[in-house]
């Protein structure tokens, strides 16, 4: 009887003890930081390799299709791809399917161009290099040469310049985004006459070279909802635009069939997918260190071990206590 009571107590454990355990493990593993290795998977490598083959003459879309609620998962993957694009001088269009995603795009850009972070990119706003555009200087190398000739020096710790309108355009959010994608297959400018800051898109050199999605080489949608499939339906199937997904862990299994069918080139699933991309960036010398997703993987691994242990203990208690022979557990109406 006494033994059964122990099993009963185990099965009816107050869930707050589990929350406490998870909280303590999170804090301890962040403080200690074991740096457990993260191996990369084919799904993430495919995205990395695809982006790595692109250059200044190409262009990609990065979709910030998530709200702050899933920032922890989606932001690191978006930041990693943005860093990769800036490193390879690939022009980037930043969009948002959801209203709050626009703020996420701004945050990602601020983070990658934050002067306080070693390995940042120095941002030059659209109006700051207006004179060069008026003088007909739109080639990236020429812009940098003229910019530095005018006395601008790349700050210590910065990896390079990024010019708004040449290297990136923050297009922002529009409602009914599936129709926006459809419209962009003909013209990006008709859908976004001005960018997030109100700059006229038509005056941006990157828009002159990439007028529609047909002139774009890849769209990476970092999403927290099924809206990411808009890109497959309205861009992939209509004009054959290569698509890559960065999705939350909860969604990841739903989209594996699209990899198998070849509708997406790859997928970053949850924090793990983002950590893999960070590892690939570091291994290929694009960043000096990994970032937040990788640092979180120690905690992730420890938490998973803890949860597995709880499941094992719960099952032992269930069978050892003989509860599999009863219709319900004691103490649970």
């Amino acid at each position: 009887m006494g033994a059964v009571n122990i099993w009963e107590k185990m099965l009816n454990l107050d869930r707050r003890w589990i929350f406490l355990g998870i909280g303590i493990i999170s804090i301890v593993f962040f403080l200690v930081g074991f740096g457990m290795p993260v191996t990369t998977t084919k799904e993430v490598e495919n995205i990395f390799d695809f982006v790595n083959e692109l250059g200044p003459d190409d262009a990609i879309f990065i979709g910030f299709d998530f709200a702050p609620g899933t920032q922890a998962e989606n932001m690191p993957m978006a930041v990693a791809v943005l860093r990769h694009a800036f490193h390879n001088n690939i022009p980037v269009f930043m969009t948002a399917i959801v209203p709050l995603g626009q703020g996420m795009a701004v945050s990602a850009l601020n983070y990658v161009t934050d002067p306080a972070i070693d390995g940042h990119y120095e941002r030059v706003l659209f109006e700051d290099w207006a004179d060069y555009r008026e003088a007909g200087i739109t080639n990236r190398e020429d812009i940098i040469a003229a910019w530095e000739r005018d006395g601008n020096v790349l700050p210590e710790g910065a990896l390079g310049w990024v010019f708004e309108g040449r290297d990136y355009a923050l297009l922002g959010y529009l409602p009914l985004f599936h129709l926006v994608i459809l419209g962009m297959t003909n013209s990006i400018e008709t859908q976004f006459p001005v960018d997030y800051h109100g700059n006229p898109i038509g005056e941006m050199p990157m828009l002159k070279e990439h007028k529609s999605l047909r002139d774009v080489d890849l769209a990476v949608t970092n999403a927290a909802s099924g809206a990411c499939t808009y890109w497959i339906t309205y861009a992939r199937e209509k004009i054959g635009l290569p698509i890559a997904f960065g999705v939350t862990g909860v969604m990841a299994t739903d989209y594996y069939p699209y990899i198998q069918s070849g509708q997406i080139i790859g997928q970053m699933g949850g924090l793990r997918g983002a950590a893999e991309y960070e590892v690939l960036l570091q291994e290929n010398g694009i960043t000096a260190t990994t970032d937040k997703a990788f640092r979180g993987m120690d905690v992730q691994s420890a938490e998973h071990i803890f949860i597995i242990l709880l499941i094992v203990i719960g099952n032992i208690a269930y069978f050892a206590g003989g509860f599999h022979k009863k219709t319900r557990l004691k103490g649970r109406g």
Partner: peptide, 15 residues
Amino acid sequence: FTVMGRISLLIGRIQ
């Protein structure tokens, strides 16, 4: 994946 996702959100907040 759901467990991983939920823990990831906690990790983001702890960070």
